[in-house]
């Protein structure tokens, strides 16, 4: 395993991949689907010293379900996330977010692991993952770290991932029976849109489906990293839906974000839209909850 210039590694086993990273992690690029990496480097591929291609790591291409959690391999593509019956059933907004990424061509190649590691402030899967309380498994040849997804991102395209580490799995705790979620992505066109703003919301109810026990609202494209508005929790937890003021919560979301002006939208636009999509998500969740509560005739 000599590192000649322009080396290409495609190991079959995870330990072998970790070994390669511990030796050459600082020089080489890890490639999964390539749908972000080859766009970034499309005119300067020659700058890359070498590749670690994950395509043969079948261990990373599985979605596994046990009694308390679902483990998603980092090489699962957006198309697979979109179509997986388990993901659709337990984590519907993750499936919906995956279905709206890029185009069929992009969804067939791009992976969940790549979306996370690329750490774009507009990464479409990131806010649903944080709203569902995802944890990330980071492996190196000497240790295994499991961290909450929100701690992974430090800035635009910046994460805590070390050169010798590989993101291998995304772990999602199974939601309780009464769990409701909603997701909105606002972009300039239907396909291939980089989001101007997106919001994911997950509400967990008590066993009798009356009291709100968990509430997570996470937005993307409004800060250097995906951002949870933690204040929403305090306003919702322990209450019933009738005790929650939607207008006030939406105003809270608008007040807590400080987006920037960029090519996809101004600060003012993003703040206004944040408020409106928060109302939309609350109403969607409320109507799903109400439909479930109504007696079936």
């Amino acid at each position: 395993m000599k590192n000649q210039e322009g080396q290409y590694f495609s190991p079959q086993q995870i330990p072998e991949a970790l070994e390669i990273l511990s030796k050459y992690g600082k020089e080489i690029k890890i490639i999964a689907g390539g749908s972000d990496l080859l766009v970034q480097y499309h005119d300067r591929l020659y700058e890359i010293a070498g590749w670690l291609d994950l395509k043969n790591l079948t261990e990373l291409k599985k979605i596994e379900l046990n009694s308390s959690e679902v483990s998603i391999g980092a090489m699962i593509t957006h198309s697979q996330l979109e179509k997986s019956p388990q993901i659709k059933n337990y984590f519907p907004i993750l499936s919906r977010a995956a279905a709206e990424i890029g185009s069929p061509q992009i969804r067939n190649r791009g992976t969940i692991g790549g979306n996370i590691v690329n750490a774009s402030p507009a990464g479409d899967l990131l806010s649903p993952l944080i709203a569902y309380e995802a944890k990330l498994v980071l492996l190196s040849s000497d240790e295994k770290n499991i961290i909450p997804a929100e701690q992974f991102f430090t800035g635009p395209k910046k994460t805590i991932l070390k050169p010798n580490q590989l993101l291998t799995q995304i772990i999602l705790p199974l939601p309780p029976q009464n769990c409701y979620s909603s997701w909105v992505k606002v972009g300039k066109r239907k396909a291939l849109a980089i989001s101007t703003i997106a919001l994911a919301m997950v509400v967990k109810m008590s066993e009798d489906n009356q009291i709100i026990q968990g509430a997570k609202v996470c937005l993307s494209s409004i800060a250097p990293t995906p951002l949870e508005i933690k204040e929403v929790r305090e306003e919702m937890i322990g209450k019933t839906f009738s005790q929650v003021n939607f207008t006030k919560l939406a105003q809270l979301v608008e007040d807590k974000i400080s987006p920037i002006d960029d090519i996809r939208g101004t600060k003012e636009y993003r703040k206004e839209v944040a408020r409106r999509i928060m109302i939309h998500c609350l109403e969607e969740i409320y109507s799903c909850w109400r439909d479930k509560c109504l007696p079936i005739n």
């Binding site: 290409y8 490639i31 390539g34 749908s35 766009v39 499309h42 291609d53 395509k55 061509q105 190649r109």
Partner: peptide, 20 residues
């Protein structure tokens, strides 16, 4: 666009060795 392993893909975003 090409069809690779029964899937629609953009061949500009695939490295040649990835098609091995």
């Amino acid at each position: 666009t090409i069809i690779m392993n029964h899937q629609l893909v953009a061949s500009c975003l695939v490295l040649a060795p990835q098609a091995d």
